[in-house]
Simulated assay, not measured.
Amino acid sequence: MNAANKTVLITGASTGIGRAAAELFAAKGWTVAATMRTPEKSNLGTVSDRIKLLKLDVTDPASVERAVEDVIAQCGGIDVVVNNAGYGLIGPFEAQSDDQIRRQFETNVFGVMNVTRAVLPHMRERRQGRIVNVGSAAGRLTLPLYSMYCATKWALEGFSEALWLELRQHNIKVKIIEPGMIKTDFFERSREVATKPGLTAYDEFVSLVMPNLQAWEDAGAEVDVVARSIWRASTSIWPRLRYQPNATLAVWARGWVPGHLAVRLVRRLFNAW
């Protein structure tokens, strides 16, 4: 794609992967609609005059519609949407409340769907566009204490692949980014472990696993690695669906290693006995 007059809308652009992607696209000459729930608290707009901050809450369809309409009006169109907003609910499933589980799906799954539905009429009319969904290697394999996060990312995999098939007729491409462990504030934002009064049966398991999850994130790749994958997915002419920054080997192994051995490997890596 020629950078001239190209616009990308990125959700969850306040920190981490979203911010890194916004800075990269701006450096490449694109107009960036960097969306977040509280743009007034972000200094991202000072990085480049190509970055426009907009308020968008992916769980609020009205907020999504307003933001998409504003971007189209201000920028003349949307060429790429990067569905990046998300977080991880940590803790034993039994300890998680209905509200916590619903919020996890509202953000990580229905939020992606809200944004995608809002931009599709515009992209269909123009007969061009790309939807880049930031999933996770946890959408292809699983981690202890991340049952609901993994469930949302597995759902995103199915949604994205089916969408990839049905939108080809309209010249709209769908891509999935499946990062492995990345150094972001993701773990810190998800740090509060779900608990339930009187439920102590998982305490020892949590105390053994949590330090290992933190250590793996601390040893992860920098966010720029994911931002570059998002850039390639957004601009490459190669008909590729999935990109796996810092996760290629793990995802490949999960597809070939027998299930019972894969489970044993994860248990050993995270001390999840």
Rank of each mutant, 00 (worst) to 15 (best):
residue 4 A to R: 11
residue 5 N to V: 11
residue 9 L to C: 09
residue 10 I to Y: 00
residue 12 G to T: 11
residue 17 I to Y: 03
residue 19 R to S: 09
residue 19 R to T: 12
residue 21 A to F: 01
residue 25 F to A: 02
residue 25 F to Y: 00
residue 26 A to G: 08
residue 26 A to F: 06
residue 27 A to G: 11
residue 29 G to L: 06
residue 46 T to L: 02
residue 50 R to L: 01
residue 52 K to Q: 13
residue 54 L to Q: 04
residue 57 D to Q: 04
residue 58 V to M: 06
residue 61 P to G: 02
residue 64 V to A: 05
residue 67 A to S: 05
residue 68 V to T: 03
residue 68 V to C: 06
residue 69 E to K: 13
residue 79 D to V: 01
residue 88 G to H: 02
residue 90 I to P: 00
residue 96 Q to Y: 08
residue 104 Q to I: 14
residue 108 N to G: 06
residue 109 V to P: 00
residue 110 F to Y: 13
residue 118 A to F: 07
residue 122 H to K: 02
residue 128 Q to V: 07
residue 141 L to A: 12
residue 147 S to V: 08
residue 147 S to N: 12
residue 149 Y to C: 07
residue 151 A to C: 08
residue 165 L to K: 13
residue 175 K to N: 11
residue 178 E to N: 11
residue 184 T to Y: 09
residue 185 D to P: 00
residue 186 F to K: 00
residue 186 F to Y: 08
residue 187 F to G: 11
residue 189 R to C: 09
residue 192 E to W: 01
residue 192 E to S: 12
residue 193 V to Y: 05
residue 195 T to N: 05
residue 195 T to H: 05
residue 203 D to E: 12
residue 206 V to F: 04
residue 206 V to M: 02
residue 210 M to G: 06
residue 210 M to D: 07
residue 212 N to C: 11
residue 213 L to E: 08
residue 214 Q to Y: 09
residue 215 A to D: 14
residue 222 E to D: 13
residue 235 T to E: 10
residue 240 R to W: 05
residue 241 L to I: 05
residue 243 Y to Q: 04
residue 248 T to I: 14
residue 273 W to Q: 15
